[in-house]
């Protein structure tokens, strides 16, 4: 057949078929809207019933027992939203009701068989039910092929306080992008004080990917355990600048006075990123021992270093403020930086 005629015929067929497909989707949409409206209306009814149940002692679980299976399933999918509405005893009562309605099993089924979006929601819903069945399925989900589902399962385990160790997290979430996700950093933080030794080991392990070590260092700061200070101080000499900068960032979060001893090295670092973080840390700690260095840094050739040094001096109270006012009188770069900080901070403080 002539190629030109073929082009014409194929184009014609595709142009004719596509609107037909679209019309099928339009019909589908009509049903979808009806179903959705019914579902939303039923969800509102059920939510009201649940809230009434929580307030009304005369209403018992029997009313919910008489619900049809799809209503129970709907309640299960609403679990996360409902539980966000209530606190205290009401929350416990609601969890018991949802358990009674087999919400756990239903959500586990969604987690196994649903689409990605529903599975992520199921993970979040299951985070409210602390029992072995849930822990097992969530732990198993850490092996899921979908990273978003894996990280949701890990997050739910964290919410339940049943997050696995750093090693397990590494092995389960080890994907090309997974190890770099900021979400993983939050999970490390959620491991809490018990994980400090493990995180310290990861942070110090030069064979680990750099971004991964940074997440561990950040988590060590956010956990807030002073046991992390000494290992972090040791890492302040790491050859990699991103690691050193992360160390000072975390030391700033910990804000312990003992950090003052390591600050001079950070403030004189060859990397401006490290100097900036060290200056920020000095301000947070209130390290008066580094005031002379900070004054010199007001003439640094990098704007961010000058700015953070000025901020640090300002944060040190009267001593820093006086120094800034003295330097501001100079017709130098340092004077300009000091003037800039005073002009910005003083009116804001009034």
């Amino acid at each position: 057949m002539d190629l030109h005629i073929t082009i014409w015929q194929i184009s014609l067929v595709l142009a004719a078929v596509s609107p037909v497909v679209m019309m099928v989707l339009v019909v589908n949409r009509i049903f979808y809207i009806r179903l959705r409206q019914n579902r939303l209306a039923r969800a509102d009814e059920l939510t009201m019933k649940v809230l009434t149940y929580l307030d009304d002692e005369d209403m018992d679980e029997a009313w919910f027992d008489s619900l049809r299976g799809r209503d129970k399933k709907l309640l299960g999918s609403l679990a996360g939203d409902l539980l966000r509405l209530v606190r205290g005893d009401n929350r416990k009562t609601l969890i018991n009701l949802l358990r009674h309605l087999d919400t756990v099993d239903r959500q586990i089924m969604v987690l196994i068989k649903g689409n990605q979006r529903d599975r992520i929601t199921a993970c979040a819903n299951l985070a409210h039910f602390d029992d072995e069945k849930v822990i097992n399925i969530l732990t198993k989900t850490l092996d899921d092929k979908d990273f978003d589902v894996r990280i949701s399962a890990a997050r739910s385990l964290a919410d339940l306080g049943r997050i696995p160790s750093v090693d397990i997290l590494i092995s389960k979430l080890d994907a090309s992008t997974g190890l770099r996700s900021r979400a993983l950093g939050n999970l490390f933080r959620d491991l809490g004080q018990a994980a400090v030794p493990e995180l310290t080991a990861v942070a110090a392990d030069i064979d680990q990917p750099e971004q991964f070590r940074i997440l561990a260092i950040n988590a060590l700061g956010q956990i807030g355990d002073y046991a992390a200070i000494d290992p972090l101080i040791e890492l302040a000499n790491d050859p990699r600048l991103e690691i050193r900068a992360a160390v000072y960032r975390s030391l700033a979060v910990l804000s312990h006075p003992v950090v003052s001893s390591v600050l001079p090295a950070g403030l004189r670092d060859t990397s401006w990123e490290v100097r900036t973080q060290a200056a920020f840390c000095a301000g947070r700690v209130g390290a008066l021992n580094v005031v002379p260095i900070l004054i010199k840094m007001l003439a640094d050739n990098i704007w961010w270093v000058r700015y953070r040094a000025g901020e640090a001096l300002y944060a040190m109270g009267d001593v820093g403020l006086e120094m800034l006012q003295v330097v501001a009188k100079e017709q130098t770069l340092a004077g300009e930086s000091a003037g800039m900080i005073l002009a910005e901070k003083l009116p804001a403080a009034e």
Binding site: L3, H4, I7, W8, L12, A15
Partner: peptide, 22 residues
């Protein structure tokens, strides 16, 4: 030829319908 005209019409006017509706 008329066949060429048809092919041109298909590619300039008709195929675009499929892409847009797609």
């Amino acid at each position: 030829t008329f066949e060429l005209l048809l092919a041109y019409t298909a590619l300039t006017f008709v195929f675009g319908i499929f892409i847009s509706v797609g």
